[in-house]
């Protein structure tokens, strides 16, 4: 027994209907690999309206457990925890996998506490060694990497963008699981949409970040234009956030968000150790800075020594033609 893997997938409920969030394919891929290594089955838990977009079977899910009901229209912890606990009781998994997002980290740790399971947070790779799950996980803001083994049934959250999705098609049958959610002790009062539509930094493939070198909030359009041209999310250094040029939610770094996109473009950012902490695991780093000695160049794959106000418009223009060609 105890060789099964259960994955919990977040869905978003936009006007276009329910959709699995981007990390779903990554979590399914990692789950499939674990299930194969352990010789077990892979079950996916989906709550709320069922997202019928075929992602599940494509990435190796054997069975879908579906929990629905009024309490599952929007993610609230008490109801989600009840659903996940019911799915754990049903499938008796050795490993529960979810993504290391805001909601995933909260739910994973909370249910680990409630079920007495070992918790490993923010893994970037997973293996099975002698039956035990061993996770690779950044610590000290990515300045070190630890290998952590679970000594029993566990819950692991997986950092978005860490595992590239792979296909392993099969027919995933759906089974309904009846769950009576407990009284909600945390209730949604309202949702305040962002002033501008933001791509979620921690899940973004490409990020353009600006620092104090931009000179002031009035120059931020240079960052936004490049982000639009490259289909990227946009972030900022703490100096910029502290100066009130940009909101807290955009801060990248040790006391902001930890990101690992495929492409990170740092513009007018010196590269202080606390900033590097949040982005140095990016696959490719491009830096624009007028100071050739700026520490950001020590982690950059490509460095442009120059004035952001000249380089960014050039790069934006080039990107527009390049990507439309």
């Amino acid at each position: 027994m105890m060789a099964n893997v259960l994955i919990y997938l977040e869905t978003s409920h936009g006007s276009a209907g329910a959709a699995l969030k981007k990390p779903a394919a990554e979590v399914a891929t990692a789950g499939r690999a674990l299930a194969d290594a352990k010789g077990g089955t892979l079950t996916a838990l989906v709550t709320g309206a069922l997202a019928a977009d075929g992602v599940l079977g494509r990435h190796g899910v054997d069975e879908v457990l579906h929990v629905d009901g009024e309490a599952y229209g929007r993610h609230l912890l008490d109801a989600q925890a009840a659903a996940l606990e019911a799915a754990i009781a049903d499938t008796q998994p050795d490993v529960v996998l979810l993504s290391a997002t805001v909601l995933g980290k909260e739910l994973g740790a909370y249910v680990a506490g409630r079920t007495g399971r070992a918790l490993i947070s923010d893994a970037v790779a997973l293996t099975v060694e002698g039956g035990a799950v061993v996770a690779t996980k950044p610590k000290f803001a990515g300045k070190a990497v630890a290998h952590i083994a679970a000594s029993g049934p566990c819950i692991v959250s997986l950092r978005p963008n860490a595992v590239p999705p792979a296909e392993s098609p099969r027919e995933a049958k759906t089974r309904t699981l009846a769950v009576t959610p407990p009284a909600a002790r945390v209730r949604l009062r309202e949702v305040v949409p962002a002033a501008e539509k933001r791509l979620e930094l921690t899940e973004a493939d490409r990020i353009i970040s600006g620092g104090r070198g931009l000179g002031g909030p009035e120059h931020w359009s240079e960052i936004l234009d490049l982000a639009t041209a490259l289909g990227a999310a946009h972030g900022a250094s703490r100096a910029v956030v502290d100066a009130g040029w940009r909101p807290h939610a955009e801060q990248v770094g040790q006391t902001g968000k930890t990101v690992s996109p495929k492409l990170y473009v740092a513009c007018g950012i010196s590269g202080a150790i606390q900033h590097l902490a949040g982005m140095s695991s990016s696959k490719v780093i491009v830096a624009v800075n007028k100071d050739p000695e700026a520490p950001i160049f020590r982690v950059a794959d490509y460095g442009i020594i120059g004035d952001v106000h000249e380089v960014l418009p050039l790069l934006t223009e080039a990107a527009r033609t390049f990507l439309s060609a």
């Binding site: 061993v134 990497v145 630890a146 083994a149 695991s281 160049f297 460095g303 442009i304 380089v311 080039a318």
Partner: peptide
């Protein structure tokens, strides 16, 4: 319930490639 088996430094990053701050430089970067 978990055991930290080992700790290591992240892999070093490759040497930086310098890009000229010109339109041609941007083209080569992309």
């Amino acid at each position: 319930k978990t055991e930290l088996r080992s700790l290591e430094l992240p892999p070093a990053r490759a040497a930086m490639v310098k890009i000229e701050p010109t339109a041609a430089g941007m083209q080569s970067l992309l």
